[in-house]
Structures are given as structure tokens and as C-alpha cells.
Amino acid sequence: MSSETPLLKVENVVKHFPIHGGLFSRQVASVKAVSDISFELKRGETLGLVGESGCGKSTLGRCLIRLIEPTSGKIIFKGEDITHVDDNRMRDLRRKMQIIFQDPYASLNPRMTIGAILEEPLIIHNLYPVEKERAERVQELIKLVGLRPEHLSRYPHEFSGGQRQRVGIARALAVNPEIIICDEPVSALDVSIQAQVINLLMELQQKLGLTYIFIAHDLKVVEHVSTKVAVMYLGQIVEFAEADELYKNPLHPYTKALLSAIPIPDPKPRPERIILTGDVPSPIAPPPGCYFNPRCPMASVECTQIKPELEEKSPGHFARCIKVPATI
């Protein structure tokens, strides 16, 4: 957490998916999945990306390592603009940028043994050319995530969801990455198993000095793991702050509603809760003005006219809302 230059810098990243239609398959509209996202991340930090389904958090995560090509904007990794580098360079860079997927059932090849799954990235990146050393590395990896070497000869179907997610984590760690995008890594798991995987991720972060981008819809999990949190709504960041600050002092009405909607495991009666009406609007035709205005309990006429900017409302605390007064 010492180095001054950010490990990852994201500037105005936009992703629009074109929709083709009509007689000549012209582009008739676009899904505005991610609009104008900027942030910086230092080594050793964890950025939590939260939001409801369809808010663009996974698309953003994939844009960052160019599994999806961003429409515009810049992604700067360790001072290098990687937005337009060629495939060869990108392959080298992916050694440093790995991803863990949500579904531990779909993200492991059912025909490969766990050993082969863990060995593959090492072969692709030509990391341990001597077979014996490679085998040793694979053994080391499986132990690192709390599984046993005898598991290496088994196939994914022989494992439970939590164990498979451990294999997914080991595969991401194989190439010694510096940043890992965790795309809903625990949402498919049972509560008691969730806690095991979260503990493992945090332990590995400390041991290996990893930087995480942690994408999740569960605000409690995000609070637990993150140093910074970005709340997304319809492709935009609506609030961004240090994790403690954001949870203690949420500014944007959407963040407030999200926090208030979480069922708390305590039967004590709770103060009034903000229940939002309606659904998330379509990202093909977002509403005019503030994207949140049709569901916002604070919305007024100007909210349908002015597109709010992400402004610093108090030191280090950004929100995209014209109703929130700035205190600096």
C-alpha cells in the first residue's frame, strides 16, 4: 500500500454494445452497458464494485482485462496504456491480471483433471519449462488454497462448489498475478462455505500482496473485503468512497436504498426502510437527466433535466446527485 503510482488507472471507460436490425442490419441502437467510468487503484487495495443485475459491473470487470474491448476510454496498468496493445502483449499482460469467475460449475473444463487445469496457464505462459518444477508448482498451488495434492488427479465433478472455487482461485494464482478480478466469486456458494472462500481470498491477499477488484451484489460481503467501494447503477458509478466512509455515511439516494433493503439477521424491529418502486430502466434507453430519477424518492423536476456529474462531496467521497450538497 506504499507505492505512489496507481497499479491500475481507468479513465472514462465506455462500453456500448451495438444492436443491429432493420433491412441492412444497420446499427439501430446500443446497450449502454458501461458509461464513463474512471478510478484509480493502488497496490494491495481492494475495490468493491456493487450494484444490481444489469448495472454493468461484470462488463466493466471484463473490459479492464480486455476480455471485452471497451468502446472508448483508457486503461493504464503500471503506467502502460493497455487499451490498444496487440494480442501478444496482452497475453503477456494477462499473466499479471487474472480473473475468478462466478460459476464454479461452468468455469472449469469437466474433461480436465484439476492438475491439468492448474498446469495449463503455466504452459501457456511458459513459466516452468522443466516438467518436474512445473509439477512442484502445481502441488504448491493446490496446498496454497487449502486442498490436498491427491486432489490433483480428480475431475471437477468430484468436488463441491466451494472446493471448485478454490481450484478457480488456484488457477488464477498460478501465474503470480498482481491484480485479480473476482467476479461474484462467492454468490453461488452456501453461507458457511462463502465465509471459507472469503477468508481464503483475504489471507492470500496478505500473503501475496494482491490487488483485487471484487464484483458482487452482496453489500455485506463487499464491505467485509473492500478498502474502496464503487456503487454502480445503469452503467455509471453513482457513489465512490473508502469502504468505511461509504457504509457509515452513504450520500446517494440509491446507495441509501440499497443499504436499507438488505435484510439484517436480527429480529429486532428496524427503523423505516426505503423501498424503491419500479425496476431498473433499460440501458438501451436510459431515462433523461439522472438515470435514477424514476425510482428516486428525492427526485424533482430538475433531476429529469440535468445529467449529474460524479462530484467530490466531501474529501475522497464522490456522488452523482444534484441533491447532495457538497461540504468542501
Binding site: 453461507v191 458457511s192 483475504m202 455485506k220 460481503v221 467485509h224 439484517i264 439477521p265
Partner: peptide, 11 residues
Amino acid sequence: SIPHFETGSRM
């Protein structure tokens, strides 16, 4: 095993 809302619970 559920993460609770409390500040400073990180790590």
C-alpha cells in the same frame, strides 16, 4: 459466518 455491518470489520 455471515459478514455483519460494522466498521473496521475488514481483515
